[in-house]
């Protein structure tokens, strides 16, 4: 029987390579081992990729589409914590690295194209290559830094400032994501959000 390698050549890892190089440069061997473990995941709109209570098995690299990480409890309280979009990483990162059950859901908000890497693969690469471990450490610091910045916005900013900060970071998000998710991310109700939208637009 012939071995079919065709699926390997169709994976476009160029954006992933660039994203990694921006975080911390890897040499050829490290990079080719790192890129070799990713597999493509196409997903439709509103597919739940990780359920709360289950353990995150994948780190995602987003090639197309928008996803969100959110909290939802029995009382119907919902908190959108983060959006992910190309070209960046996504998934329930804490659950992925600790291999403890996730408290959060991770879902697509639009049709998406992603690559994914299993927790076993990253474990093996981290123990084998110090440079990959360093790259991940720097990448994680970037995530922590983004979260801290967001905590400042949540605690200190007015609604309008939060709204403007979101548009500064992601200018096209208003046309891509249903506004209810953006309103939830900013911690305001839909009516308030549309009032701000009308005010800021003019």
């Amino acid at each position: 029987m012939m071995v079919d390698f065709t699926h390997m050549s169709t994976i476009d890892t160029s954006a992933l390579r660039e994203a990694v190089m921006r975080i911390h440069p890897l040499n050829d061997e490290e990079m080719s081992d790192f890129l070799a473990v990713w597999t493509p995941v196409p997903a439709k709109r509103k597919e739940i990729l990780t359920q709360a209570g289950s353990t995150e098995t994948n780190l995602y690299f987003i090639q197309k589409g928008v996803q969100r990480l959110y909290y939802l409890d029995n009382e119907g309280r919902e908190a959108t914590l983060m959006f992910s979009y190309a070209p960046s990483f996504g998934g329930v990162i804490d659950s992925y690295f600790t291999q403890q059950p996730s408290r959060y859901y991770y879902e697509t908000l639009t049709a998406s194209a992603m690559l994914r890497m299993s927790a076993q693969d990253i474990d093996r690469l981290l123990s084998k290559y110090p440079a990959i471990e360093k790259m991940i450490r720097i990448g994680m610091s970037g995530i922590v830094s983004g979260l801290m910045e967001r905590m400042v916005e949540i605690q200190a900013y007015s609604s309008e400032e939060k709204f403007r900060a979101l548009l500064r970071r992601s200018p096209h998000i208003l046309q891509i994501v249903p506004h209810k998710y953006l309103a939830n991310y900013l911690g305001m109700d839909a009516t308030n959000f549309s009032k701000l939208l009308n005010r800021v637009r003019i």
Binding site: K44, R45, A111, L174, Q175, I176, V177, P178, L197
Partner: peptide, 13 residues
């Protein structure tokens, strides 16, 4: 899907 794309890119804005 097409209606959702239209509603998010146009109508809601």
């Amino acid at each position: 899907e097409a209606h959702l794309l239209k509603a998010t890119s146009v109508y809601q804005n």
